[in-house]
Amino acid sequence: MTALLFFVCSLVAIASAALVVSRKNPVHSVLFLIVCLLSVALLFLLLGAQFIAALQVIVYAGAIVVLFVFVLMLLNVKKETVTLHSSTVQKLGAVILVIVLLMEALFVAVMGVGWLSKEAWIAASGISFGTVQSIGRELFTRYLFQFEVASVLLLVAIVGAIAITKKR
């Protein structure tokens, strides 16, 4: 059952990721981005990370995607006629680079960990660190300074975004 869920979620995630980069209309890209983010949230749930899955839905599929849609509507961009770069060398180079990167990453993922390793994979019910309680405890004790820095970063981003877009 878990394996079936994993395969369905990962297939949907990969297919919708491919559709995000291949659709001509950016609005369609945003909609497929939502599908991709939600299926990755399901993968997080399968990994036992309930709090991260909820955050994924709220922060990514909620706030960030809404920001994208908002800017798309604001810009009112006409449908692109040419979506890819015009230079053939650039396109060819990009495709080769992506294939090499994919091979490298898959090699590390498969060889480095062992494709069918049956060792030390605790059942989802056996772990307790995905809950809000355990993450919150760590966040406000060991990672307190980093947490404060993250809040300052968000403040800087808000002020920066307002300062950039302000009409002079």
Binding site: V21, V40, L101, L102, G114, K118
Partner: peptide, 21 residues
């Protein structure tokens, strides 16, 4: 059984798609 490398492979494919984009 679904293991570490399956999830890492999915992650690698999504990352490569992003780089392609």
């Amino acid at each position: 059984p679904v293991g570490v490398s399956h999830y890492l492979a999915v992650s690698a494919v999504i990352f490569a798609v992003g780089v392609a984009g």
